[in-house]
Design a protein around this nucleic acid. Structure first.
Lengths: 149, 149
DNA sequence: AAAATTAGTTTGAACATCAAAATGTTTGAC
DNA sequence: GTCAAACATTTTGATGTTCAAACTAATTTT
């Protein structure tokens, strides 16, 4: 047991440390080089269907609504996001992606899917299911930890 | 194949997004609440044996040496890190952890190890090996992507 | 021994973040 | 119906992080 912990731990540490840097660099090398990885994840949280409010996106991205407002100002200025006042409740702002924003969303989604495909490349169906089980355990641990703080 | 990509992708996205937040909150709730998660990872990169230089730690943490110098100033002030001029080459600064820094290092390491243990909790030896294989693939994908930028 | 290189520090500008105050809208109590 | 409370968002001011570039000091090369 300890042996395998010693094997997995460094992979996880390296993966966590590197994935953000790598995504940031992938952005910098693309035509969307006016965005940071944080802005990319904000766009990811806004999603394709313009149904999320400012508060909801702030919650998803773990920042205060004040911080999100500033960030959305920049994303609107850069042409990725638009604000739409809700007609049912005029306090509420729905956030949506522009055409350019949706293009980027799909590109980033493809990056993630390619990453997962590579991860599964030489695994059988049954082995992939086991991987899912492990990731589910990890995810449950994190959620439990989050809620016990 | 597509079905399982659709299953794994959201787990990875959530895990990546949450792990930093959760570690940050775990720190805030501990006796080491004067540190951010970035500072924690700097301490992790400095390591237990005081053999790493400023440049090496900057490279590991993906920041410029200037940024690291500022960060190390704070960690020295807070009592976690000490600078030791190298005697062989007096331009070089070796970074080491104080007693307090080493205590924190071990605590953080335990957090990681507990996380991995939970991930493996209901997996057999063979299943754990399959998980390692998947993580190795993911890690190789990230390294390949990094080097092709 | 002068010039070039290297390791690290300092500085100034840009940006991210939060908490708290401010603005505009809706809901509920009377 | 009106007024107070609650709510969603924005604005503001302070703090912290980051980078690039200028700088200092030590070493290596020529």
């Amino acid at each position: 047991m300890d042996k395998i912990v010693n094997e997995i731990n460094p992979y996880l540490v390296k993966i966590f440390n590197e994935v953000l840097i790598i995504e940031e660099n992938a952005l910098k090398g693309s035509r969307f080089n006016d965005l940071s990885i944080k802005e990319m994840h904000t766009i990811e949280a806004i999603g394709m269907y313009g149904e999320n409010t400012t508060s909801e996106v702030a919650k998803k991205t773990y920042v205060t609504v004040g911080t999100l407002t500033v960030s959305i100002n920049n994303l609107v200025k850069k042409g990725y996001v638009e604000r739409i006042r809700s007609e049912e409740d005029r306090r509420v702002v729905k956030l949506g992606l522009t055409k350019k924003g949706r293009l980027l969303y799909r590109l980033h989604d493809k990056f993630h899917r390619d990453m997962v495909k590579e991860t599964l490349s030489d695994l059988s169906e049954e082995e992939a299911e086991i991987l899912v089980k492990g990731l589910r355990n990890l995810h449950l641990f994190l959620d439990r930890t989050k809620n016990s703080l």
